[in-house]
Amino acid sequence: MDVLEVPGVLESLQPIADFVKEASAEAGLERREAYRLRLAVDEIATNVVLYGYERSGQTGLLRIAKNLDSERLTLCLEDTSPPYDPTAQAPPSDLSESLESRPIGGLGVFLTIQGVDDFRYEYVEGHNRNYFTVRRPAAV
């Protein structure tokens, strides 16, 4: 399956995760890379549901598509909630601060950017598009 379209609700995180796992297996990613990619997509999808759709009172879809070539796996997560560029978000404050004293925002996007080789965002014709790219292991 190259494309999955699901409602923009938290219950859709699991089918999205299954789609990512399947794509990672097809791309031959190592377990660690596959986990980090799943985490990256999960964090952005969660933000879209909670802050894109729910907070704006809108409903809509989450669409995820994969593009696999000999060197890279790229996943594109798309939605129609209000424009939101995760890459414009400030990084989390000092990560060594204690749980009690630091603001908690920004962790999801931080994990996303740390988890993939390239993360890109664009807003095109009413659609947020988040691109997650990982390099495939070198052919043996």
């Binding site: 377990r31 660690r32 986990y35 980090r36 985490l39 989390p92 000092d94 990560l95 060594s96 601060e97 204690s98 749980l99 009690e100 962790l107 931080f110 994990l111 740390q114």
Partner: peptide, 17 residues
């Protein structure tokens, strides 16, 4: 498990737990 530990360390939560 290792990937969960990695997330906790990456975000600095290992200083608080």
């Amino acid at each position: 498990q290792d990937p969960v530990i990695e997330t906790i360390r990456l975000t600095g939560f290992d200083h608080s737990v």
